[in-house]
């Protein structure tokens, strides 16, 4: 270091240098999702200027359409950060939607909601128990559970939609608004906020990351890694059952198809958001933007007039590109 001459301009120079230095040294890869989000948003804003892309209603629509994916992805962030996976979330959401719908029909609102949550809890305990007590890889347990849950949903409804006539439910869990904000946006914000705080600011969050980062070292540090893995799998299923109720509320019915195939979008959102597929790192806010980015792309491609086959190709290419950029080293 040279002599410390303190002139104002020199001070602001150093400040500028240190900010640049900071940007350069900080791992820019972890911000790829935000950069991608801004770039895609700007691209569609210009391209679809006349198609109403920037309209307030359209933007709120994107939030509403991605809400169920977003909240499932928040819980999935914990699962993947602990180096596990949950493939059953989509079909658990579907099953929860029909269980809730049928129970509301026969017993009323509160029992219906409780039944949906109990279903999620039960599936989560089964998933977590099989993974941690019998040491079966979560990939296989939840793949099996994916089939079981959607099979049960079809079976108990004879594949028929279950209409929900309870207005309170439909308002709270999907179609309602608070002021100008759709209730689904509120649900998303609440789940993301709680998830971000729990992962970054609690001892539990640190233990999840340590378990996924190096399970042996975590175990040698006195962390009960089985309990951690059990807990995140239960969380994932319970949150998936809430997502199922949001489907039911938005569409005024329970149906086994709700959520079908969502597991792939959910996992893609988590990975796009910067969580390592191998565990040990996780970013809940990144996950939200991963989910929104995919919603943005879907919405923009539809407005641009691409047909379904073209949408799928473009979406796939963008996901691969973003993940390739976000990969570290």
């Amino acid at each position: 270091m040279t002599a410390p001459t303190a002139s104002p301009s020199a001070a602001s120079d150093t400040a500028r240098v240190s900010i640049m230095e900071h940007v350069r040294r900080s791992d820019w890869h972890s911000y790829v999702i935000y950069i991608a989000f801004v770039v895609v948003f700007a691209f569609f804003s210009v391209l679809l200027h006349d198609s109403g892309f920037l309209g307030g209603n359209n933007l709120l629509n994107i939030f509403r359409q991605t809400a169920t994916i977003s909240i499932m992805a928040v819980a999935m962030t914990f699962v993947i950060a602990s180096a596990e996976i949950d493939l059953s979330v989509g079909s658990v959401a579907g099953l929860a939607s029909v269980v809730t719908a049928m129970t509301i029909d026969s017993a009323g609102l509160v029992p219906g909601v409780l039944a949906g949550l109990a279903l999620g809890l039960t599936v989560g305990i089964l998933n977590g128990g099989l993974v941690t007590l019998l040491n079966i890889p979560s990939f296989l347990v939840t793949l099996g559970m994916l089939g079981i849950a959607s099979g049960v949903a079809m079976w108990i409804t004879a594949s028929a939609p279950q209409p929900i006539l309870d207005d309170t439910f439909n308002t709270v869990f999907g179609s309602g608004k608070i002021g100008n904000l759709p209730v689904l946006l509120v649900w998303t914000v609440v789940f993301v906020a709680v998830g971000a705080v729990v992962l970054n600011k609690t001892g539990f969050g640190r233990r999840v990351l340590a378990t996924g980062g190096n399970r042996i070292a975590a175990e040698f540090t006195g962390i009960n890694t089985r309990r951690i893995k059990f807990t995140v799998l239960v969380m994932s299923s319970v949150v998936a059952s809430v997502a199922g109720m949001l489907y039911a509320g938005r569409l005024h019915s329970g149906r086994f198809q709700w959520g079908a195939g969502d597991e792939l979008s959910v996992i893609a959102a988590v990975i796009l958001g910067g969580t390592s597929l191998f565990g040990g790192s996780g970013a809940v806010i990144g996950t939200l933007f991963g989910s929104l980015l995919m919603g943005l792309i879907n919405n923009g491609l539809i407005l641009a007039g691409l047909d379904v086959s073209q949408q799928q190709v473009v979406r796939g290419a963008i996901i691969i590109l973003a993940v390739a950029l976000a990969r570290r080293r």
């Binding site: 705080v197 600011k201 609690t202 001892g203 640190r206 233990r207 990351l209 340590a210 980062g213 190096n214 042996i216 070292a217 975590a218 040698f220 540090t221 006195g222 962390i223 040990g280 790192s281």
Partner: peptide, 30 residues
Amino acid sequence: EQGLVLDHSVRDNLLLPLLPGLSRGPLLND
């Protein structure tokens, strides 16, 4: 293999066995 989570920061590794004592209510005292 057994002592460290290599990709995590020095700080997070140091605090890992201390988490219960560092919490204020449900949140960690950063």
